[in-house]
């Protein structure tokens, strides 16, 4: 098994707020990892770093064995070029809490946009790919709907199809079901579970819904104070946490 995502001694602060403090983290190819932790503990920041939407202060992040935030230039390490970041981003797809669909495009248009413009496929090919992906997430009937005419669950499924359209090796879900009404969580979780069944796809989900962590993950990490405090299999970590802070967090979640 090879490492897909590696964080070595990564530090990241916003002003004086330390978000990641000498952070070390590894995810193997094909692994499904859930990250839980209190609000503000840096879970979104972690995903945004992997998606190359946010840079780091120190340390080293590698994806699929290639360094993300630095490139070799002779014997020196220099800042990554735009080109390098684009290459790295093509390995990763991301789904956001608020869907972030493009409201001026139909469901089909949203999913077809990247294959068409980024991969340079023809209009026909990119729409065929988009239609196939939308069928996979159960939205064959909604190809020509604009986002504003779709339910939250449907919008999020379009967003998942859109992220999959570039065939990433890593999929990131940032609270993908948190903005949904409870009765809509199931349909999105179902789609996420289907995706996670692909052996080669590496999946990282950030969630505060323990049901989501249980359904998707084979490893759960509890993050707090800029570090991973405790990790383990979902059953072990969620039912018998060893660390006192993990226990306190889980108690608070269950009370909520």
């Amino acid at each position: 098994m090879t490492e897909m995502i590696t964080f070595e001694n990564v530090c990241k602060s916003f002003g004086k707020t330390v978000i990641l403090n000498d952070f070390n983290f590894r995810v193997m190819r094909g692994e499904k990892v859930a990250i839980i932790g209190p609000s503000g503990s840096g879970k979104s920041t972690l995903l945004r770093i992997i998606m190359a939407l946010q840079d780091i202060d120190h340390g080293k992040v590698s994806i699929d064995g290639k360094p993300l935030w630095e490139v070799n230039h002779g014997r020196h390490l220099v800042k990554p070029t735009r080109r390098h970041l684009r290459d790295m981003r093509s390995l990763v797809g991301m789904v956001f809490q608020n869907f972030n669909l493009f409201p001026n495009l139909t469901a089909l248009g949203n999913v077809a946009a990247a294959p068409r413009h980024v991969l340079g496929l023809s209009k026909k090919e990119s729409e065929a790919r988009a239609a196939a992906l939308l069928a996979q997430v159960g939205l064959s009937e909604k190809l020509s709907n604009y986002p504003s005419t779709l339910s939250g669950g449907q919008q999020q499924r379009v967003a998942i199809a859109r992220a999959m359209a570039l065939e990433p090796k890593v999929m990131l879900f940032d609270e993908a079901t948190s903005a949904l009404d409870p009765e809509l969580v199931g349909e999105v979780l179902g789609v996420m579970r289907d995706l996670a069944s692909a052996r080669d796809l590496t999946v990282l989900v950030v969630t505060h819904q323990m049901g989501v962590a249980r359904a998707i993950a084979d490893r759960v990490c509890f993050m707090e104070g800029g570090c991973v405090v405790e990790e383990g299999g979902p059953e072990a970590l969620l039912s018998q946490p060893k660390n006192e802070r993990t226990r306190a967090f889980l108690r608070a979640v269950h009370l909520a």
């Binding site: 998606m51 981003r89 956001f96 972030n100 493009f102 409201p103 001026n104 946009a113 413009h117």
Partner: peptide, 24 residues
Amino acid sequence: GQLDAAAALNFSWFQTMRIVVLPE
């Protein structure tokens, strides 16, 4: 959020403007 989505989909600056930002 839409700029994040566009960046995550690897749109260039021009594509982000033309496909996402300007129409809206």
